[in-house]
Design a protein around this nucleic acid. Structure first.
Lengths: 333, 333
DNA sequence: ATAAAAAATGAAAGCGCTTACAATTGGGAG
DNA sequence: CTCCCAATTGTAAGCGCTTTCATTTTTTAT
């Protein structure tokens, strides 16, 4: 490996000067800069970022923790982040937490050991207190898709209660009153909030909430299918079903068809997230838009601004979901 | 930040010994180990991986280049990789190449500057020669989803020609002879190979290939929709359509329905990749399984074995796709 | 008990860079 | 032609760790 030292000798300058041209810091005369550049390309020099990081105490690396890599949700989010970071020449070190508190902590720890300049965390198992304490320790981090009051400034999230409310509100507006709900894993905040929103809409419309119309799934398509089967088997009557996310909604659609119900004529279905394929289903899935890419992008800008002193960026801390009307909902006959 | 030095003083040993217990190398007496451990937790020591990397010339980091982060394909692949790497305590530094040769090269360069121990590359724009020369320079890398003969050992790919062949073969087997084809971007190897497979199957069945029945899309759903519209508008007759991937197939389905064609009664559709949501469509999409997670996993094991001397793992260099029969194909009446 | 071998530890030289700080150079202003 | 200031460059001290080699301690075999 050719080092800065060799370059400096070849160019007849000191290594400090070479460092200056590499980092474009300090002042260096045009002529020396050229000489250094020439020496670098002649020797095939490749900057050693590891050494630079040690010396400068900056790694230009952002640690990223997400629950899983598969599925289209986190890819979209990371895509939004990456777009902003790439331009700033930062990189992402990615780890998965698997919704398990120990793994999540372990990963955060590992990222910190690697001296990431900042962390972007979508963690679901670790406690609020733990995250708050990290912030108080001076760790630069932004929590996405989760809101923690004490560190609201470090959070970028969606108003899931509002989303749950709006979804059910839409169903009510078009005339449904018997509305089933297939929830996500209820140990997760977003699943809870979405369900709360659902209940709030019912209450507001003076429709009694019935436990028997709610099924707890796990955000996977399969649990949507199972949810509908269970609901149907229980003899519950409903003309519409709201789901905690689009995957479960598509699973639900499969079970409904299997039971001979037409969508939306017999049963309306509404999802949540508006992931890519929601529009490919047929009919297209009515759902709540989750601007996940935007959230990822904002998280990046938060970091750029806070940690690297980039220009002020206008991000919001709590975004609003909005209804995407497609073909799976209609008025009951 | 507390350093190894401070720990060593607190524990009354040398820093070399502390390093030994951290890395579990060399020999250290039970009792001293305990003393060091105690000192570490008392001081809240956090290992500095950057410094360790510089000194040991190993970063335990794998660089990963994919075209994009969104969509479900690359997430699945990276998930397969991550699973294996996490157990080995390696981390992934992720970059996107956007199917642009310059960006791809830039990113590879950046990852190398960060001294990744190895690279996993899904690159589509950079030339074979460039990759070959990297390998010859001694860069440890594995190319996924692409096969380059000179460095076959460094490649893990799918036999796309076979996949294209099998898809069309299935259509032929059930009686179709007028088969349209919606291809991916034809500057990409996989798109070309899939199309070649399609043609091979036609030839084998003595069905003439007609240019007018092939449409070049770009692997996005929208282009599937446009493809069908164009094909229909051109007056071409076909009872089945094979697509370069599932996204385009779902886009095609939308356009077919919009034109009043029933699937599969009027037109059979077959996709490629078997991404998650293929089974959520209705009817479920018949497609070719692309074991992408497995490929990601094998890439990880290749690295583990080659770069870190882990146990021999049994990976294949060229995997075979297989037909997944669902509801979008049937015999023409 | 003693020598030789093995185990445990320490000293110190880097790894390749950044960054005060000091030293040098080059231009005008006077 | 000096002197002062700004621009440019060099010196050298780390950054926090790993690792070789030497040294000390312990164990084992005789």
């Amino acid at each position: 490996m050719v080092t800065i030292k060799q370059v400096s000798e070849k160019a007849g300058v000191s290594s400090a000067t070479v460092s200056r041209v590499i980092n474009n810091t300090g002042t260096v005369k045009e002529k020396t800069r050229d000489a250094v550049m020439a020496a670098m390309s002649e020797l095939g020099y490749r900057h050693n970022v590891v050494a630079a990081s040690l010396a400068s105490n900056k790694t230009h690396t952002i640690g990223y923790v997400v629950p899983e890599l598969h599925g289209s949700f986190f890819g979209a989010m990371m895509g939004g982040t990456e777009q902003a970071l790439r331009q700033a020449k930062k990189h992402m070190l990615i780890a998965t937490g698997h919704s398990d508190a120990n793994i999540e902590k372990e990963q955060i720890d590992a990222l910190l050991s690697r001296r990431c300049d900042a962390l972007i965390l979508h963690v679901e198992a670790v406690s609020n207190d733990y995250l708050v304490s990290l912030v108080h320790q001076g760790v630069e981090l932004v929590v996405v898709n989760r809101y923690i009051e004490e560190i609201g400034d470090n959070c970028i999230s969606l108003d899931n209660t509002l989303g749950g409310y709006l979804a059910t509100r839409h169903l009510l507006d078009i005339g449904h009153t018997n509305i089933a709900y297939i929830a996500g894993s209820l140990f997760k905040d977003d699943a809870i909030n979405r369900l709360n929103g659902h209940r709030k809409a019912l209450a507001e419309a003076n429709v009694a909430y019935q436990d028997g119309l709610t099924y707890e799934g796990n955000f996977q398509a399969r649990s949507g299918t199972e949810g509908i089967r269970a609901l149907l088997a229980s003899g519950a009557k409903f003309s519409a079903v709201a789901c905690g996310n689009d995957e479960m909604a598509s699973g639900a659609m499969i079970a409904l068809r299997e039971a001979g119900r037409r969508i939306p004529e017999d049963i309306s279905v509404i999802g949540y997230d508006n992931i890519d394929f929601a529009s490919y289903l047929s009919p297209g899935l009515t759902t709540m838009d989750y601007p996940v890419q935007k959230i990822g992008n904002m998280a990046a800008h938060w970091v750029l601004e806070r940690v690297y002193g980039h220009n002020r960026f206008d991000y919001e801390h709590i975004l609003n979901p909005r209804l995407i009307l497609r073909g799976t909902t209609c008025s009951p006959e």
